[in-house]
C-alpha cells in the first residue's frame, strides 16, 4: 500500500464527490458521481479487496449510474434549474465532518498500520457466502426480487 497512490486516489475521489454534490447540471453531476465511485473502487483495490472493488464498479457504474442517466432522460423536461449547495446544508455537512474527524483523531487505537493478511481470494468469499452467510444471501435475493417487482409496479401505466 503506497502513500502516493493513496493521496492520488483520495484527491480524485473527493474532488469528484464535491463536483457531484455541487454541479448545477444533472448529467455532469452523474458523471462526477461515477468518477467518485471509480475512486472508491480503487481504494478497495488498494486495501486488497479486489472482488468487492469489481462488484462496486459493475453494480454502481454498470447499473446504478446508467439507471440514473435513464431517469434523467425520462424526466428531461424538468432538468437544469437546480441551484447549487445552500449555506444550511454546507454548514451541517462541515459540522458532521468536523465531528467525525475529531472522533477519529481522538481515538488512539485507529492509528495503526496494516497487518499482513492472507490474500482474499474469490474462493474464500464464495465459501463464506455458501456456508456462514447462506441465509443473508437468500434474504438479499428475496429483497432484490421484491425491489424489482416493486419498481415495475411503481412505473407501470395506470389504468384509467
Amino acid at each position: 500500500m503506497s502513500s502516493a497512490a493513496f493521496v492520488l486516489i483520495a484527491m480524485v475521489t473527493l474532488a469528484a464527490a464535491l463536483a457531484a454534490a455541487t454541479l448545477q447540471k444533472l448529467m455532469h453531476a452523474t458523471l462526477s458521481f461515477a468518477v467518485a465511485l471509480v475512486g472508491v473502487a480503487a481504494f478497495f483495490f488498494l486495501l486488497g479487496a479486489e472482488f468487492v472493488g469489481l462488484v462496486l464498479v459493475f453494480v454502481y457504474i454498470g447499473a446504478v449510474a446508467v439507471l440514473i442517466v435513464f431517469t434523467i432522460l425520462l424526466t428531461r423536461r424538468d432538468v437544469g434549474k437546480d441551484r447549487g449547495a445552500n449555506w444550511g446544508g454546507a454548514l451541517l455537512a462541515v459540522a458532521v465532518f468536523g465531528g467525525l474527524a475529531w472522533a477519529v483523531f481522538k481515538t488512539q487505537s485507529v492509528a495503526i498500520g496494516a497487518p499482513h493478511i492472507r490474500a482474499l481470494t474469490v474462493k474464500r468469499i464464495g465459501e463464506a457466502l455458501m456456508t456462514s452467510y447462506v441465509w443473508p444471501l437468500q434474504c438479499v435475493g428475496l429483497l432484490l426480487t421484491a425491489a424489482l417487482i416493486g419498481a415495475l409496479v411503481l412505473v407501470m401505466e395506470e389504468k384509467r
Partner: peptide
C-alpha cells in the same frame, strides 16, 4: 468521513 459529508451536503 469526508466522502460521507460530501454526500450529506448533496
Amino acid at each position: 468521513a469526508a466522502l460521507f459529508s460530501t454526500g450529506l451536503l448533496g
